[in-house]
Design a protein around this nucleic acid. Structure first.
Lengths: 224, 224
DNA sequence: GGATACTATTTTGTATGCAAATCAATTTGT
DNA sequence: ACAAATTGATTTGCATACAAAATAGTATCC
């Protein structure tokens, strides 16, 4: 009778996402999408009612996101969506720069067939979105592209920190890509990077990624 | 009258550390010192009574440390001190490798007088501890040395992730340095690195750091 | 004797309540 | 009229309580 309620099918059970996880994911999504702007204050009670939970899980989620650097604790009161000065943005991008370049170097040295397919598929998605001029779709495809590269390092820790920085800079990068030309240009830059990687030239791969990131940084600065 | 009690002098007020912070720091310290070994299970209630607090702040601290990767959630029940297989250790060190090398490269390009003094002071501490054969002191000095380099990058985010990896690998690296020779050798390796950095040779600095880290990794593997 | 089912205990996740801290606003004094 | 102070309203941090989940232990049945 209540067996239907107590849990979904045992096979493939998605381990009944805890409220904390729901809230954490939800917030990340909203921040990533720019719905919660940098500098915005987050009210515990408000979030609690909005997510249909009590303050306790909200608190835990905020805590974790703060530890990840997505949120910051204000001087006195309140938790805020992390907001970075231009100097901080610049420093953050420098760090991203280094990490992404390291990823590219590693991938160039260690690429296997499966990863190559995945990366190529992701790039195909980027090209398609760029040609269609679909900005939203390109943002998603671009994300997948970079994630594919991280994954191809075969090193979950590299992937982890790279993803973390991506998340932290996400709200700022989200303002990029004003025109269809920007999308096409970005996709082209991807292709240059892939050429280096697929030719297993670690130094060239690293440099291509640096170039790509440098452009990305400039665009981001312009947009913020 | 009570002005003495309500707060220490308003200048330099240490903003009355919250219980969460006390617990978080305490756990980090114990883990770093190896008192809490990798794989050890952490009991919420136990920690609560041990730190003289309730489960709520303990929970928050555990949550944050989990987000930082210092702790991991077990399959079903319990939070554990992160424990890494040899493969995972290897991957973690590879990531550290890359980050530390990037730091060295940046520092070589950007070294200012103050940072140089700080690094040299830290290195002096390492040499002194090594010559004295004081392992405990060397571990501390070595930590200070690496932190000085991170700081010298002028990039808090690079410093942050580098520190994070240092923290995560800390319990494993702590088993290194069996003999006085090991200490001296490590200090010598530092010196080579500094020579590269001070000569502003970014490529050489990066390579020196890689060499240093490679040795560190091998020693760590042997000890674990 | 071994396996399965049922109960009990430990443990986690969430809710609520309360006290201390911070911010805002009104009032008071000069 | 403006600065300082006091009061009032949010809001945070922590503690406790309770319910659901999971493991361990026990008993029962074959």
């Amino acid at each position: 009778m209540q067996s239907m309620l107590t849990g979904s099918t045992n096979t493939e059970n998605k381990q009944s996402v805890s409220a904390v996880q729901r809230i954490e994911r939800g917030l990340l999504e909203e921040i990533g999408a720019g719905e919660l702007a940098p500098g915005q204050r987050l009210d515990e009670a408000g979030l609690a009612s909005r997510f249909g939970a009590s303050r306790t899980p909200v608190r835990e989620a905020l805590s974790r996101l703060t530890a990840q650097g997505v949120l910051v604790q204000g001087e006195k009161r309140g938790v805020f969506v992390a907001e970075y000065s231009r100097e901080q943005l610049s420093q953050m991008f420098e760090a991203m720069h280094e990490i992404e370049a390291a990823c590219a170097r590693i991938v160039a040295q260690r690429l296997d067939f499966l990863s190559r397919s995945e990366i190529e598929a992701a790039q195909a998605g980027c090209v398609k979105a760029a040609e269609a001029g679909d900005r939203t779709e390109y943002l998603r495809a671009n994300e997948a592209f970079h994630q594919a590269i991280y994954k191809a390092t075969g090193n979950p820790y590299m992937a982890e920190i790279a993803s973390e920085f991506r998340q932290r800079t996400g709200p700022f990068r989200a303002k990029k890509f004003a025109s269809r030309e920007d999308l096409l240009s970005s996709a082209q830059s991807h292709q240059a990077l892939l050429d280096s990687i697929f030719s297993k030239d670690a130094a060239a791969a690293s440099k291509s990624m640096r170039d790509h990131m440098a452009v990305s940084f400039l665009e981001t600065l312009k947009a913020n």
